[in-house]
Structure formats: structure tokens, C-alpha cells
Design a protein around this nucleic acid. Sequence first.
DNA 1: TGTACATCAGTGAACGCGCGTTCACTGATGTAC
DNA 2: TGTACATCAGTGAACGCGCGTTCACTGATGTAC
Lengths: 210, 210
Amino acid sequence: LLAKRLGDVYTDNMTNNDNSVNIKKAGRTYHHGDLRSALIEAGLSLLQNCDADAVSLREVARMAGVSATAVYRHFPDKQALLYALCQRGVDQLAEAQRAAKAAAGGGTAGFDATGQTYVRFALANPALFRLMMTTQAPTGHFAPDETLVSSAMRELRQNIAEQLPPGAPDDQRRIAAIHAWSLVHGMAMLMLDGQIPRDEALIASISRSV
Amino acid sequence: LLAKRLGDVYTDNMTNNDNSVNIKKAGRTYHHGDLRSALIEAGLSLLQNCDADAVSLREVARMAGVSATAVYRHFPDKQALLYALCQRGVDQLAEAQRAAKAAAGGGTAGFDATGQTYVRFALANPALFRLMMTTQAPTGHFAPDETLVSSAMRELRQNIAEQLPPGAPDDQRRIAAIHAWSLVHGMAMLMLDGQIPRDEALIASISRSV
DNA sequence: TGTACATCAGTGAACGCGCGTTCACTGATGTAC
DNA sequence: TGTACATCAGTGAACGCGCGTTCACTGATGTAC
């Protein structure tokens, strides 16, 4: 971390991979893109390497090369920062599923691919995935009993309903959707918790059950 | 908490619901049963009311009416205390499943009851359930890739295998077992995380899928 | 073009908190004589 | 039965830690004149 900051000083003008530019003058860091984005990137990269509970406001700030208090210019509190990370995670998962579905050519194969992508995303982003599932939206964001994740899953639910025969009753569609989600979610969590092996063959086996 | 301690003083000799007896003399607490059991009970009751991360060593000691350092007479460290709680949880879950299976009269109905009991246990003991799934055994307790939970699930896996036709290959049995576990585990976790409603009809719907 | 000034994204010091763990200790208990 | 003593389950004070958050501040920037 110190090395990174010193590096910034020596290059003097440095462009982040994202939409922010850090400029050091007189030993001070100015973020001319938005520090907000830099903080989110820092948080995501932290989630790649640590447990979710290691993502402290101070550590995120440290990784962004900024004092802890600077965070409060961009987020009202820690919870809001975490929530922003969740939103990014949900977007990434949705995008990955959309891509997998398209690559498989839609239909049943596309649907299977969606489920497998869900598990692979969880394995590739354990801490982020856990955070996404655990985090409740700030009050007022969603209808009661609706979460950031479950609203993102609405599309998934519709996919599942499509797999059923046209005449199927709504309740049956709803239950089928929840069973499919439960299966992939359960497999993902059991793998993350080390209860079952992280086995590609197991992930592939999903298609035989949904 | 203070009230409880004062209560102890007034009754002077007080029998816990468990296998320990607290005696107060000269303002001091002596546990003549084992404080170990009392600490575990305190931890379990704490898990009933709080998130798992609120179960601190100090709080458990407080609930048992004892100084934090007293814990170290009975557990090498906090991790060992948590692990003891997990063991109790695993036992409780296994016992509940055994009872449900017996009550349903074995066979397919018994197997379904096992899965539904899994979900109900999670809903009834959210923090304990999470802790059980997350906690890794101290090194040396189990074979690599084997956890306290997954070893307790060995019985479940055998149950599942029994439901398959006799000629089924081992690999198919293994996958069927994991799918069944994944389904109930996923439903339990999604309900705990508030992603799907805690709906008894959903729990009942499990029997149509395993 | 030069100057005065408001803005506002950063700063470091400080706060109180609860945590896990260590330490030297104390005093009730049970036992040996 | 009375006494000396070892045992060992408890005690409270103290440690260092990292946390989220507050506070008054500073100084580079862009703008108005």
C-alpha cells in the first residue's frame, strides 16, 4: 500500500484503470475522476482477496490511497458503501448470466447455462456473492419482501417459467422457479463453505435436474 | 444480566436447567456442575437471539454470569467455544431429522420429511445454522475435504442413495444426494437471507422435487 | 491579465467502543496426617 | 476431630487492536471582476 502511494508520487500523474485520475501534488492525492468509483473498485478488489467482514471502511480507503474520512464525501456511511458494492455484484452476475444464455443459444440449453453461471460466479467471487445475498437494501429502495438480489432474479424467474408447459398454473411456475434457484444457490453455498467439492462435473450435473 | 446475577445472590443456591449448579458465596460464583456446559447453553441461547457475529467470548461469559477469563479454564480459545456450539447444532439437526424420518414411517415419506426438517431447523435456528455451515473443524478433526457438517450428512447421503433404483451407478447416487442437499440447503439459505418468503407451502413443495 | 474570493474534496487527530487474550492473583475446596 | 497444605476454578486489571465516526482544518481549484 505504501509502495503504491510512493509509486503515485514518482509518476506524479497517474491514470487508474477506471474513470478516475489521481494526481499527487505536494504529497497530497486528488481524485479528479470520482473517488467514488475508485472506492468501489477498491472494495471489489478487496472482496476478491478477503472475507466480507474484512472489508472495513478504513481498509477500502487505504486501498484507494486516501484517508478514511474522505469516504464520507461520497457515501453517507459504511453501509452505503457496501450497498454500492452489492449493486455492482448484482450487475456483474446478471450480465454474466445474460452472456451465458446468449452463448448457449437460448432455450433449454440457455437456461441450463444460466444456472451454471450462477454457481461459477459464486465460486469466482465468494465474498462478493455472500455480501450480495446477505445485504438488505436501505429502507425505501424496494417493496417489502423485495431485495436487490431478488429483484435482479425476476428475470431468472421468468426464464424458468418459460421452460414449463404453456398451460401450467402460476403457482407451479413460481415453485419451479424457486426450486431451480434453490438448487443452484444451495450448490453454490455448499461449495463455498467447503461442504461439497468444487467440482466442475457437479456444476454440469445441474442441467439434469432443473 | 446484572439482574440475573443479583437474583442468583438472593436465592443463594440456584440450579440451572442443565447439568450445572451455580453457588454464590461472598459475591462470587462457583459452578459445581460444569461451567463448560453452562457456557455452551449460554452460547446457544445467544445464537437464538442474535447474529452469529454477536456471539463474542465476552458476551457468552457475561450471559453465564462469569468473567471473560473464566472461559479459558474450559476452552483454549474462542474458536474452540464456537466449535463446541457447532457440534451441538449438528447433533440437534441430526436428531430432528432422525425423529422426522421415524415419524413419517421411513421410505419416501420419511426421506421427504428429512429434507423439510432441514429447512425448518434452519429457520428455527438461523444464526446457529449459519455458524454450523461456515465453521471449519480444527485441523486434524476430519479427513481433508471433510467437515463436521458434511460428516453428519453422510447418513443423509445414504438415505438419498436408498431412494434410487438398486442398479444405479455410484456416481449417479452421489450426484442425486448432492442435488437433494443443494435444494434444501438453497431454499433454507434463501429464506434466511430474505430472498424468498418463509412459506410453509414452499417447504412442503420440496417433496415433489427430490 | 492579475487578483480576491468562495467552494469543497481532501486531511490528521481524536472519540469511544468492544473485542480476544495475558497476567498475577485469590480463596473455597478436599485431602493427608 | 483439628490443622496444614496443594489444587485449581474463578477474579479484575491491563494489553493492544482495528473499527466507524466526528471534528475543525487546509489548500488547490475555478470564477467573477
